[in-house]
Design a binder for these strands. Structure first.
Lengths: 242, 242
DNA sequence: AAGTGGTCTAGACCACGTG
DNA sequence: ACGTGGTCTAGACCACTTT
């Protein structure tokens, strides 16, 4: 066992910056000093500064907005993918401001992978909705939704900047039964990264939700691409009775 | 709109390496060429090579073993945190080899944060178990478990290299009722990184599970530190009847 | 001892965002 | 126009693992 742990320069810098955040000297959404400024301050190269910053980013303590700078990350929001009370309300219950923006909506033919997952016949028309969601005016996720139009004709004529499930419930009396959820850490491809105003290859949490109704018919599939440091997933489950 | 998307050198290198993996030229657990060798091959600096490698690591396509090299990552395993059929069996059902190793087990006083989460009186004795789990001989997670000894006296005298829940069920007739699960992307601290033979600050998925029995009494809390590219979380939930 | 990744220096130019 | 991060070069030394 070593008496003294050797800690790389970039980790020491990380520690000092982390301190400023934890001690409240820098608050959520504050801009950090420029990289060049930090490199002078600590008398190290910009490369090393960036190593420290990237580390803090991976931890979720800071985030960057493409070419605008580094900022102190706000607290993660709790997110329960098994609930459907509406994103905006859910987030605002936690004291944040939330907003949804519809990027596109159209009727498309179900792609092959979707058919395989849901049992829909290939080529069946489905609604495809693309939305971007903000927390405190920071774009935090993009979601792509496929809805089975069978029981909700005319869905796209409604505003989709609100809770989709509230809409499905109130206008179409649809109710989700079982949800199959999948998620794993990933990175953002160029297209989605751009929509979130971050770098290609940025760390993310990918989440997919497939939802059927009580009769076992496919209702909705939802793919969410989250900034990895924006959320904490919480879910409460009871084991199936054997 | 640009006709041609400009792609950085390191992303082009990433693409070429990713191709070798996707096309099956390199197989799971194969070692990649040394960084210096790659930098010669592509006629770029080692820095740029590393940028490509780090990118692939973030995507989960490759992993590194501290100072030993870069390797093609095997497929993620599916992991359902709501089930308790036993890690080893669960993983082997998917065609992998799994192994569990107990790093330590002891009776400790419940730390404050544990009491706050579970409602246990502070200082109550609880079993603390530290385990490391392997998939195909690659250490993939470390878990720290706290068990309420109230209904399972003598637990630590058993071998803990097996399914804990099988043990609790068979020897103590304990059955989990509701589970509260939390998870989010994080990084590994120095201690855990070392136990997984990876670098400090390595990307991970943190998962915490709190489990009570039918009477609402605290049974077990489990903290898992996963290599971020080792798993895909899958969970199936039914919404509570309102 | 040799080879590997891990860290770090001291620069440079570019692309984009903001005033 | 200027400041910012994004990318890249061409080296160097260190710490650890493997042979």
């Amino acid at each position: 066992m070593k008496a003294v742990e050797k800690r790389a320069v970039y980790l020491k810098v990380r520690d000092q910056l982390a301190d400023k955040i934890h001690s409240g000297i820098w608050l959520a959404n504050d801009k950090l000093p420029a990289e060049r400024q930090l490199s002078e301050q600590f008398d190290i190269t910009r490369v090393t500064v960036r190593q420290a910053l990237v580390q803090l980013e991976a931890e979720g303590l800071i985030f960057r907005a493409n070419r605008r700078g580094w900022f102190v990350a706000p607290k993660r929001i709790d997110y329960d993918p098994s609930r459907d009370i509406g994103f905006v309300r859910y987030v605002e219950d936690q004291g944040f401001h939330a907003r949804t923006e519809t990027l596109s909506k159209q009727l498309v033919e179900a792609p092959q992978w979707l058919s395989q997952l849901t049992g829909l016949a290939e080529g069946t028309p489905v609604y495809e909705i693309l939305r971007r969601r903000y927390i405190n005016d920071r774009p935090c996720l993009v979601e792509k939704i496929f809805v089975n139009p069978k029981h909700c004709a005319g869905l796209l004529s409604h505003s989709l900047n609100q809770s989709l499930w509230e809409l499905l419930r109130q206008h179409y009396q649809l109710e989700p039964a079982e949800r199959y959820i999948e998620m794993y850490p990933q990175t953002l491809d160029a297209a989605i990264a751009q929509q979130l105003n971050v770098n290609t290859g940025c760390a993310s949490l990918y989440m997919r939700r497939i939802c059927h109704d009580q009769q076992g018919e496919f209702l909705e599939l939802d793919e969410e691409f989250w900034l990895h440091n924006a959320l904490k997933v919480v879910v409460s489950v009871k084991p199936p009775k054997p």
